[in-house]
Design a protein around this nucleic acid. Structure first.
Lengths: 206, 206, 206, 206
DNA sequence: CATGAATGAGGCTTCATTCAT
DNA sequence: GATGAATGAAGCCTCATTCAT
């Protein structure tokens, strides 16, 4: 499938590869995929145009790489932040906040993910499905433990991702800030309201 | 000084303008903005290339027009569908379903809206801010009537739009279908759970 | 040769024709021939695009018309200004000044003439050859009367036109002002120095 | 941020750049700026269309380059031709002739200069102001040495350039020949008549 | 007389990608 | 490993001119 781009072997090569990736993140984040140009990426990376194709098969490929990188990075960040928290609803609270901070911090990377939808849908779907699957697994676990209401964990995952994304869009991306307190509270109300176990669930949990 | 695209004076001109808009909807929806070409739009519309520029200043301008059109159309559809329903939570239920059906039906148009974000952010923001403002006004009204929980109506609007959008993305756009029942139920659980008035609110409502 | 553009017969038609010519003068003068557009000319003239072609066969034709108009106007102005002056060198003095004032006043028209060279050389040549021929005739007359030095009157005409044109370019066109006094004096020194009859000429004049 | 046309690094690149410039000289000279096309220039130069934009930002930029080149070339030619001549009036005589021969020889290049006025006035002004400044300096020197009449050297420069240009236009450009002898004599009469020191100047010269 | 919609050729420019050194 | 010159397809947009009403 891949057209055998020479993978770097030397440390110098690895360095160049990293530089290109970092440059692409900036370039894509600032200008958007289509307005971004390979020549500008190489300029930022301080290498010649041709060098780009030693490491990546195409402009799209580096995008795909970037989205995967973001995926790992976000998941890692979330895992770190919620590590050790046992209450699932608390996890959601912290997770939302962590995500929003992440989106502010890594705005460029985040924009790249969003845009990937219109370059190659498969990149974007891979990202969200991957994310949703992991999320779903965690929620199912919590359901089994009776921490949250039973129901379609997959549906819960998408609903929660939807809320988080839109708050991220509205505040992190558009304003570069966290949502004001009342908005955060409202969001948490939805999370709790939608997840807190009902009486019936207690029974099931037994 | 302005490029002064002629607003059509005759019926024939108006017809051409419509044809171009319809052609653009198809073209953008199928190929995405960047892959779409003006020449293909005019071919679909059955006019010469130059004719395009009599009615629209640029490829971007017709996109903007299209997004505005979609905005009006969706709001109109929602208003129609929820007309006469007095219970706000019921309105939300129906609204979600209506939106999802709309996204399936007018998938092309909906994709155009999503993509507009990466062509010219202002187009996209105009769309969502407009939508959010109207939504917020309605929710505030419902809050005053004690139908839903008090809190940031603006935050509620964004949370609700976020959930709807993601379900629309996952099912309407990706699959072309409505979400399965259990997912819908889960979503409604979030809506109700986040909106149903608390005890305290009863007091305010008096 | 001409493609039989309907010449206007009614007063209304004549008016439209005038309006178009005046609009073209402005448009060409401000933007230059190539940047100027027929549609902008008709807009300025307050008529529809198609109307243009009732009166002029093409964009070039109206340019030609304009240059001819300028030719008549300048010659008329010069004739008026020097009328009654018997001394040829005095005529030259006054003529230079008149020309420069004219170029300041009718800058747009003058620019049009200059540019015509690069649209259709024949327009431009017609203008300058016509001008040179008339000029030459007058100088020959003055030579016969012994008022100015004998020699190629045609050469004198071109030399004088050259000086005038360049001063016109440098000051009238570029600055929109008359040359400073010392420059004018210098120019007049060339005129006199090149035209004042030599001793020998007195003899011939007899 | 700047469009950053690569200044060639290799000899091959430099060669291509030269080829493009030479091709543009031909193309512009033959067809005029507006009728000329970049694609025709690259065809003449034997490279692909895109190559053009590696070396020049736009069609206008290569014009500017060409005019500057012409400026240097003409000044160099004049300097060579008049080198060693001590009498200023003799310098003028030789200069005029040299210029006219140059205009015949490099007719294409010369036309490009003239036309530049209507593409971007700044190109043209740069050319003439540069030329006038150098010329003025030389004339001032001659004035100080009492070789020519005192007065505005700048005015003298423009008057002389005007005469030369118009003779160049009438004969070199239009006919491709030198002016006939009687015309040349007449022109020289103006030069001498306008430059030969007056009695008064003798005094100053002391 | 006038209108204004429609035409369609044609030009400039961009940029991902290849390749010889 | 890296360079940078070259490619060439492809697209947006302009505008003089025509024509039906």
């Amino acid at each position: 499938m891949a057209k055998a781009t020479r993978k770097p072997v030397t440390a110098r090569g690895e360095q160049t590869r990293q530089n290109l990736l970092a440059a692409a993140e900036l370039e894509f984040g600032e200008k958007g995929f289509h307005t971004a140009s390979v020549s500008s990426i190489t300029r930022r990376a301080g290498v010649a145009q041709g060098t780009f194709y030693i490491y990546y098969d195409s402009k799209e490929e580096i995008l795909r790489e970037l989205v995967r990188f973001m995926n790992r990075k976000l998941r890692h960040t979330l895992t770190q932040a919620t590590h050790g928290i046992t209450d699932r609803i608390e996890v959601e609270r912290v997770g939302l906040e962590t995500f929003l901070r992440f989106a502010i911090e890594d705005q460029n990377l985040y924009r790249v993910v969003l845009e990937s939808q219109f370059i190659d849908e498969s990149i974007y779907r891979e990202y969200y499905e991957q994310m949703a699957d992991v999320y779903t697994a965690r929620l199912e676990q919590a359901q089994r433990e009776g921490q949250i209401r039973s129901g379609s964990a997959y549906g819960q995952a998408w609903a929660l991702m939807g809320m988080a994304s839109f708050l991220g869009l509205r505040y992190a991306v558009w304003e570069g800030t966290m949502p004001p307190d009342d908005v955060m509270e409202t969001a948490l109300a939805f999370i709790e309201g939608g997840l807190v176990p009902l009486k019936d669930d207690d029974v099931k949990a037994e």
